[in-house]
């Protein structure tokens, strides 16, 4: 299922005095089962990129290919594309509208052609994936839940279609630490089941923990690409691109400056801790 962008550019209000170029010739290849993190300063083109991936925007130039097929070609089945690529917008809780949680999660399956029993099974599974019991939550009003619970219901609404590729836009913005942990666990679980995931986030710690590869956008171009270790290696370069490095990497940098050399590859707390443990506990001299 490789997902490719070929020299994709996108301009809003093209051909008018208000034209704004959001992406400039971005190329990208995503492999099956990969977790891709996307970072960048506000207005760098992140939202445009994911809307192009989900087929909600059509590139001004270039092509978006799924399995080698142009998703914007005239013959392409948009409904099938929507079922394969799931997009969870920022603050997805705003899209809830049904009377009950179960109905809201079923909404996306309306045109799927599944039998009612199959739909219920999908909804049950989706709710369980986000940690809710169908029996307990199904009949409640989604509007009376807490913010974090609403967001999980909204995510279940996208999961019910069983997409192969899931795109999350700022999924942990505004969540408490518990909610954040729960979400990262969900990403790992979904990825282990074979779902490819695109995570757009400002949170470098979360991306360092679960992304296989990171993409840093700046002014509509790919400015940096690589594993978290590679992208966060040069702290100054990241700062120039207006993105944070992960907290452990920043700590490692401070320690290095104060004479305790920590390799640039320690971008997660586990990594940093194991480096420090080796230095200080296994008999080595600091």
């Amino acid at each position: 299922m490789p997902f490719c962008l070929e020299e994709v550019s996108f301009t809003y209000a093209a051909g008018t005095p208000l034209a704004v170029q959001a992406l400039r010739g971005v190329s990208l290849r995503m492999e099956a089962g990969e977790v891709l993190g996307v970072m960048g300063h506000t207005g760098c083109g992140k939202s445009t990129l994911i809307q192009l991936l989900a087929g909600l925007l059509v590139p001004t130039h270039g092509r978006v290919l799924l399995d080698g097929q142009d998703i914007n070609a005239p013959g392409c089945d948009r409904a099938a594309l929507r079922a394969r690529v799931g997009l969870v917008f920022q603050y997805p809780e705003c899209q809830l509208f049904e009377i009950t949680v179960a109905k809201d999660v079923t909404f996306g399956l309306k045109h799927s052609g599944l039998s009612p029993a199959q739909k219920e099974e999908r909804v049950r599974a989706a709710l369980e994936t986000v940690g809710f019991s169908y029996e307990r939550m199904g009949a409640q009003s989604p509007l009376a839940l807490s913010g974090g619970e609403k967001r999980r219901v909204a995510i279940a609404g996208v999961l019910a279609a069983r997409p192969e590729i899931l795109i999350f836009d700022e999924p942990i913005a505004g969540l408490d630490p518990m909610g954040r942990e729960r979400f990262l666990a969900l990403v790992r679980r979904l990825n282990a089941q074979g779902t490819s995931i695109v995570l757009v986030s400002h949170n470098a710690d979360a991306l360092a923990q679960c992304a296989d590869r990171l993409l840093v956008l700046k002014d509509g171009c790919v400015a940096l690409e690589g594993t978290a270790e590679q992208v966060f290696a040069d702290v100054e370069a990241a700062r120039r691109l207006q993105v944070d490095v992960s907290t452990p990497r920043a700590l490692g940098q401070m320690l290095t400056q104060r004479g305790v050399a920590v390799p640039a590859g320690a971008v997660t707390y586990e990594g940093l801790l194991s480096v420090l443990k080796e230095r200080f506990c296994a008999g080595g001299n600091p």
């Binding site: 809307q51 989900a54 909600l56 409904a79 929507r82 079922a83 799931g86 997009l87 917008f89 997805p92 705003c94 899209q95 509208f97 909404f107 996306g108 399956l109 309306k110 045109h111 799927s112 609404g157 996208v158 279609a161």
Partner: peptide
């Protein structure tokens, strides 16, 4: 954003039939 989010979830707003279009409004 809401329109796009519902489309991404599988809503259809482009239907030709009046009844279907009306039914697509609540979401």
């Amino acid at each position: 954003t809401i329109r796009k989010a519902q489309i991404a979830r599988g809503a259809r707003f482009e239907s030709r039939s009046l009844w279907r279009r009306a039914a697509s409004l609540p979401p």
